[in-house]
Design a protein around this nucleic acid. Structure first.
Lengths: 354, 354
DNA sequence: AGAAATAATGCAAACGTTTGTATAATAATT
DNA sequence: AATTATTATACAAACGTTTGCATTATTTCT
């Protein structure tokens, strides 16, 4: 009879999960003691602690997230806002890094794909603010016209860390690469491989691209060869990726037949470029040396394999999460920190020395 | 003075979020009425409802997830267990589909990358069981030796839906494709394109591959040409992807120079195959027609572009989520359902008619 | 042995919701 | 106008934890 009542009582519990109160009743101890025992408080006698813990593992006790969150005013959830995880393997790697780190801290990870359009997703973010998340990791994907949402996050003192791209005029924590330096190294690699007439193709004039191009310019300037600024091509975003690479390369290669090197600011631009070069019977790398950017999987698989700059996404994600957790657990305000992750040039066929 | 106390009171609240109790106090109404008003209960007078709602939006009220979860015994979180989101764009698409659907239901989405090794991650799953999640969508990535964890989920009556791959001998809900039919259609496409000596290369003998190969056999049998079972090559998992494709194609193409078509059970195998074919000066598609499987981005970008079978991941994800929510909201047990999503052959250069 | 100090446990309130039931206010009926 | 029926609100308990404080049990000291 007593058993019946007990089991009915437990039945109420979702999926038959045992609670602290259940343990307390079973052991005729107060719930508070059980709670303290389970969190290894030094205040409870080791013999009772042992008894409680044994019972807990035997009955597979798992703490109730919601109750703990409510009490502690912590969600044990952080949030990652990233654009289009689907196609973007780089962001996928960031994600893995963050998740690995979150797990260490006993945190869960919520992922929101943002489609490059944060403005529309502000409601989603607001929703997160109350009991939704303890902190946010995001990539700044704005045209810079309105940073209101970032400001709101800062005002509310939500722990916040940017990865890859950060708002340029705000004091925030961020984990980024040195795009200027990376562009510089990429271009220098082409020069060292024997190219001297080097063009640069890029997407729209956003922070990232501008910096990579700036690095390109620096390398060209150092190399005494006069930089023809016509050889820098920005492309506003109508099409993108490989298609964009094809369209802009078509003109470029026609107009400058003397070209023997191209720095593409993304790997996809590079594949488009090479496709066009082949069509025009330009041999890569013999007649045209190419380097891309990001080290996407395709750059290795393509024929010829494409030299590129490796962006260590996993490491960036881990570092970002570490920063975030230092903020979450900080008692007083912690200063904003910028971490710059090292990139390196990956040499492949597309820029082989003749 | 009163204001001070009030603001101090609200200060306690994380990130200055207003609560139902705050609204109640401010409006001198009982919290229960506020709660009912906000959930549009017909029992509260429309004038008070209006008053409450106005105050709520004005002060940007957002319900507290934890409190609601605790009370309702629902987490409003579902969980997706998927292998290696990073490289697997197909799984990325599933993810997007699930997330889209979850949002509709006011649910949040937790993603766990599983590295194809669920056994080791059972603890993670167990952790989810208590207050962790209301339901799970997963892809069955087991060698079939021990399905204990699946059984446990079923026993505990956790709403559960499989996508892409499901355990073969258990009665579960699943959203899959008809791999036999897809393999059949792919092979038939090669036959129609003019190939007659068709081989099949595949990864390890798992459920998926076996079925695709079975489809291949059916198509070959129908075509009166005698099926040479030597032309079916399984590869146990030592290396994988493109590398595997290269290694096994090398031998195959040498041994059977009369071959004029290959069905590869994944796109990555196909890229490896084509790379080798090129090296051996075999022209694709003129001398060798190739079709892959899954329609990964690379199959379109490769040169030549690779014919393949499209697996509509997004749709599969959405459907899986719909099934899951029907389970979550069901009052009584709902029967296990199998949804088969249609695939289609995508014709590209690699299988063009001469 | 008795007082004082320390250790171990129990009690109760709180976190922000929701919901069954009781009460109060209003409207409809006689 | 008094009774009943209806509608609207208030009360209180509950969800599973945690934690300051009170209480009880144990040890240490004189």
């Amino acid at each position: 009879m007593f058993n019946l009542i007990l089991s009915l009582n437990m039945e109420q519990n979702r999926y038959n999960q045992i609670t602290i109160t259940d343990i307390a009743k079973a052991l005729k101890i107060n719930p508070s003691t059980v709670s303290r025992a389970l969190s290894d408080s030094s205040v409870v006698k080791s013999s009772t602690k042992k008894k409680i813990k044994e019972y807990a593992v035997k009955h597979n006790y798992q703490p109730n997230y919601a109750a703990r969150s409510l009490q502690k005013k912590k969600t044990h959830t952080i949030c990652i806002l990233l654009p289009k995880i689907v196609v973007h393997e780089f962001f996928g790697k960031i994600l893995l890094g963050v998740q690995r780190e979150a797990q260490k801290h006993g945190y869960r990870c919520l992922i929101l794909p943002t489609n490059y359009d944060l403005h529309k997703e502000i409601n989603e973010i607001k929703n997160l603010l109350n009991g939704g998340t303890d902190g946010i990791i995001m990539s700044y994907q704005s045209d810079g016209t309105s940073d209101d949402y970032v400001n709101e996050l800062i005002e509310r003192k939500i722990p916040l860390v940017f990865v890859d791209i950060a708002p340029p005029n705000l004091k925030v924590s961020k984990v980024i690469i040195d795009d200027i330096h990376a562009g510089y190294m990429a271009t220098k690699h082409l020069l060292e491989a024997g190219a001297s007439q080097i063009a640069c193709i890029s997407g729209p004039r956003n922070v990232i691209n501008l910096q990579r191009v700036q690095g390109y310019q620096k390398a060209i300037n150092e190399s005494k060869s006069n930089l023809n600024t016509d050889l820098i091509i920005f492309n506003e975003k109508i099409i993108e990726g490989e298609q964009l690479g094809m369209v802009c390369s078509e003109k470029l290669l026609k107009k400058y037949p003397q070209l023997d090197g191209v720095f593409a600011t993304t790997d996809m631009l590079a594949t488009g470029l090479i496709k066009v070069a082949k069509k025009q019977n330009l041999r890569v790398p013999e007649e045209l040396k190419v380097i891309g950017f990001s080290n996407w999987a395709i750059s290795m698989l393509y024929e010829p394999s494409i030299s590129t700059v490796d962006q260590p996404g996993f490491e960036m994600g881990m570092k970002a999460a570490q920063l975030l957790f230092s903020k979450i657990s900080a008692t007083s305000k912690v200063s904003e920190e910028t971490v710059i992750i090292k990139t390196k040039v990956i040499r492949r066929e597309s820029s082989k020395v003749n």
